[in-house]
Design a protein around this nucleic acid. Structure first.
Lengths: 244, 244
DNA sequence: TCAATCCAAGTTGTAGGATGATATACATCA
DNA sequence: TGATGTATATCATCCTACAACTTGGATTGA
């Protein structure tokens, strides 16, 4: 419900559309780093909007460190490594290959974080993780609420590391994945898969309770690879086979 | 040189300052999720700026998914998990404890990525990594150029994973760290430390050449812990002691 | 009294113009 | 030649006005 409202609020506003257009042009390489953007006036004429709209669009891109505006000269495209923010293009995630990469990143982040969490978790963390687990396996299965609980489970583990940056990054990546597979989840509501999913979570939780970092890491790795498979993403072995 | 200009270009513009202020208020919890922001007019009066400036500031926050504006009603604070972008507060990194957390995150990301890179790198990757290594140990030591080369070395390894998201995330984290310790590097230009730093990079490179994921991961982990120490950050054991 | 309708005020979205600050290129002059 | 000033282009900021939208209360009618 709330989600619905948020979605409606995200209607394309003019500055957003202009920013998206410029952003695409930069990402696609039509505007290389160092290149100068058209002047605000030219852009406002080109898009048929007021200069204020163009300025708001540029303000967004500038905040991300995508472009740099210099008074009296113009606005220039910056190199990707100078970005001040990370933003993931939702469109690009429709490509399975990109989704695969994102899952790989998630696996790296969450596996080691699970190990950290196992070593550092307090009782309160275990409680909130358990609460999420119960909600996930509760009456609501594979519904909106269940997915929320799934995400919350992972976020709470990230929180148990005591590292706010880890929490932020994991929350972000998970949310990107969740919203991108939003459409696909109704197609495979197979109960077998749900059972498997819950079971994997239980094993992670047990490792955390035991305070066993290696077990937590392994369980998390197994789970994420499995989760990727369940949404149709074949994850390449993110770890070199546990040969260590 | 270019870096210098970029730094000057980042002078605090009015919208940026307003956005930073509001962002602080949200992060600190003074404005809870769901709360309504003051109207644009009130904000413009409060900060003594025009409404346009306020609007540009809000445009930034909205692009990040921090707030949601609804015509005719007002602007509201969104929950952290709905954020569309990751941004790290440079001010917060002045606190050593936060810097420590960021290094920990970096260690997680880079260690496993080094293992991936060792398994997937092609000859072209090895070449560009070697080029960065040479520049680092070249005539320019611990100068601007040397630090650039250091960063490039890490970015090229991230690129060798073949995963663009990993590359993006690692580049981002490294850049945040680099800019935050910008002032500190002149204070410890001890040549011993430089030698150690280069030596650690060489060992990583050798593991990549050998195609040995485990060795690459271990070398990278050692290096990042060492790098943290060299800028005065004592990293807690990010891995549970290699007891696996 | 109660309900439906309409209207007015408040808020964000967009437009357009005016002025100040800054950088570049060119002309001017010693 | 070299320094200086001027013209111009561009972004930064401000201002006013109106459109679109939401809310709540006033009005109206039964």
């Amino acid at each position: 419900m709330k989600q619905r409202l948020a979605a409606i609020g995200t209607v394309e506003t003019l500055p957003h559309r202009v920013a998206a257009f410029l952003s695409r042009e930069i990402e696609s390489g039509e505007l290389n780093p160092g290149a100068r953007l058209p002047t605000e006036q030219e852009l406002s004429e080109k898009f048929g909007v007021s200069r204020n709209v163009v300025r708001e669009a540029i303000a967004q891109l500038r905040a991300d460190g995508m472009i740099e505006a210099r008074q009296g000269i113009g606005a220039f495209v910056l190199a990707p490594e100078q970005r001040a923010a990370i933003r993931i293009d939702r469109e690009a995630l429709k490509d399975t290959h990109n989704m695969e990469r994102l899952f790989e990143l998630r696996c790296i982040l969450e596996a080691e974080s699970a190990a950290l969490a196992a070593a550092r978790r307090g009782q309160e963390h275990l409680d909130s993780i358990k609460a999420a687990l119960d909600r996930m396996g509760g009456e609501e299965r594979w519904e909106e609420g269940s997915i929320d609980a799934d995400l919350l489970f992972h976020r709470e583990i990230a929180r148990a590391t005591g590292n706010s940056y880890i929490h932020t990054f994991i929350s972000f990546v998970c949310e990107q994945i969740r919203q991108s597979i939003h459409y696909a989840r109704m197609t495979n509501p197979l109960h077998d898969l749900v059972e498997i999913n819950v079971g994997e979570h239980v094993r992670i939780y047990e490792a955390l309770v035991a305070g066993d970092p290696a077990a937590a890491e392994a369980a998390m790795r197994t789970h994420i690879i499995g989760a990727a498979n369940r949404v149709g993403v074949k994850l390449p072995l993110s770890k070199t086979g546990g040969t260590k």
